[in-house]
């Protein structure tokens, strides 16, 4: 599903390249649950952003479902991305001005899903995550765990093949964190969603089927 070949990313500071990612080679097959583990500054978020097409690599090739992402035009890339990828963030990143319902609905709007279908899909996921009662609340009225639940619901609403999670439990207490991790495992097993998560907690990394250790922009072992 994902094939990274010699991916590097650097910034030039006073003439010298400063590597964030260096010569990353990585293959992830459909159905895997990969945890990227590493200390802060190791480049794990950047790697996730490159995979998620939010960021470009400075060098190297990236194939997603056999399509050469590195040479796709912005429009094609966004099409690919919209169709297959969902994102979950550490800081939830819900839109404060929108209700829970509207937050979850947003990706569907951008994919031009019809209003009646949207209603059905959102109702479905609200039900599944058991947050029907919260649908008219605004994000600030929810606890952190509930907000992340909404964030995940939003990431999954368009039925992506790949879920990318950047420190999804970083802002949560351990009980809430465990619940989210259980949910991920369930999604991976029952719904066959491919998941890549970034974390610096060994415990959370254990939920994955694979662990990739990242240090100073390089993969240590896999």
């Amino acid at each position: 599903m994902i094939d990274l070949k010699h991916i590097s990313k650097w910034f030039t500071i006073s003439g010298k390249p400063n590597f964030i990612l260096k010569d990353i080679n990585l293959t992830i097959r459909e159905g895997e649950f990969v945890s990227i583990l590493g200390p802060s500054g190791s480049g794990k978020s950047t790697l996730l952003n490159v995979i998620g097409m939010l960021d470009d690599a400075s060098e190297g090739e990236y194939y997603f479902l056999d399509q050469p992402v590195h040479s796709l035009k912005e429009k094609q890339r966004s099409q690919l991305y919209k169709q297959y990828i969902g994102f979950v963030f550490q800081a939830y990143h819900l839109i404060d001005e929108l209700t829970v319902y509207e937050n979850i609905e947003t990706p569907l709007i951008y994919q031009n899903v019809k209003s009646s279908e949207r209603q059905a899909m959102v109702a479905d996921i609200l039900d599944r995550f058991q947050i029907v009662g919260k649908k008219d609340l605004f994000p600030t009225q929810l606890s952190g765990g509930q907000q992340q639940l909404v964030g995940i619901a939003r990431a999954l609403i368009a039925k992506p093949k790949l879920l990318l999670a950047d420190e999804p439990t970083g802002n949560l207490n351990s009980k809430q964190g465990e619940e989210i991790m259980e949910l991920f495992r369930q999604l991976n097993k029952e719904d066959k969603v491919t998941i890549i998560q970034v974390t610096h907690s060994e415990k959370n990394a254990e939920y994955g089927t694979h662990i990739i250790n990242l240090l100073d922009g390089r993969i240590e072992n896999s």
């Binding site: 939010l54 429009k75 966004s78 991305y81 919209k82 994102f87 990143h93 819900l94 839109i95 947003t106 990706p107 951008y110 994919q111 939003r154 368009a158």
Partner: peptide, 9 residues
């Protein structure tokens, strides 16, 4: 940013 990540062009 969120809207872009959610697929907004």
């Amino acid at each position: 940013g969120i809207r872009k990540v959610s697929g907004a062009r």
